[in-house]
């Protein structure tokens, strides 16, 4: 059987809220080392990869590898019934056709149980190669969310260019153009406001803002977002959850036709 308990149930809620508009359904794969998901959006332009480590849970038991297919909209409906402070326990029997979610309030006065029907989902699993990236940028997650939102009111695509000491986001549209530059800033009083750039090679790539805006729904998960870029490769947009795991988004670049 599979059983996992997470005290910060709000985390699970945030993860599902971050991906539910991008992917319709997905298999949640559980094994000894943890809980993971990989899924593409319906246009096969982007890929979501979630991994939550077994030791990030208070209790974790997985007797044999299980793959549980769920419709994200339905999972979201159920998790919305959990309080942000609730502990959440997930439970499923081997070869079971449901997964049970138990929500416990911090004072343990209220205990709720919801069963979600599992589904068979055909999903193509892609191999994500280990890569050394030309540039890695770590910036406050809220800052990135604001940039992609602001640029979306001007254009549909963004060119992200990274040099040694700055990252630039630029767009052009019918009404005009916009450029936002963030300088490297490591030595701030508040570490959550730092911007760090690690570069092997200057790089500039163009991406659809619609997807980046969707990825930015993961902002509540982490103080920072990490962007990894290489010439002619998908961008990686990563949110790390300390001691628990990571939510990564991969987006194929736009090309000149």
């Amino acid at each position: 059987m599979f059983e996992a308990r997470i005290a910060q149930g709000g985390l699970l809620k945030k993860v599902v809220e971050a991906i539910k508009d991008l992917i319709e359904d997905a298999n949640f794969d559980c094994n000894n080392s943890g809980f993971s998901l990989q899924a593409m959006d319906s246009s096969h332009v982007s890929l979501v990869a979630l991994s939550l480590r077994a030791d990030g849970f208070e209790h974790y038991r997985c007797d044999r590898n299980v793959s549980m297919g769920m419709k994200l909209a339905n999972l979201s409906k159920i998790l919305k019934c959990a309080g942000n402070e609730d502990a959440i326990t997930m439970k499923s029997e081997d070869n079971g056709d449901t997964i049970t979610f138990m929500f416990e309030t911090p004072n343990q006065e209220r205990l709720s149980e919801f069963d979600l029907k599992l589904m068979d989902i055909d999903s193509e699993h892609l191999g994500i190669p280990e890569a050394e990236y030309d540039a890695t940028v770590k910036l406050p997650a809220g800052e990135f969310q604001r940039i992609v939102k602001d640029l979306s009111s001007i254009g549909d695509t963004v060119e992200i260019s990274v040099t040694k000491d700055a990252v630039k986001f630029g767009t052009t549209g019918d009404i005009g153009s916009a450029n936002i530059m963030c300088r490297q800033n490591k030595s701030v009083d508040k570490p959550e406001e730092s911007t760090e750039i690690d570069i092997n090679e200057p790089v500039a790539l163009t991406f659809a803002l619609r997807y980046l805006n969707s990825f930015a729904k993961a902002t509540p998960l982490s103080t920072h977002v990490v962007l990894k870029l290489s010439k002619d490769l998908p961008i990686v947009v990563e949110y790390h959850v300390p001691d628990v795991g990571r939510l990564g988004f991969y987006l194929a670049p736009k090309v000149e036709e």
Partner: peptide, 14 residues
Amino acid sequence: SRGQRSITMFFPGG
């Protein structure tokens, strides 16, 4: 104009 590539072009099926 700019074309959108598919993510499957970059990551092989596993």
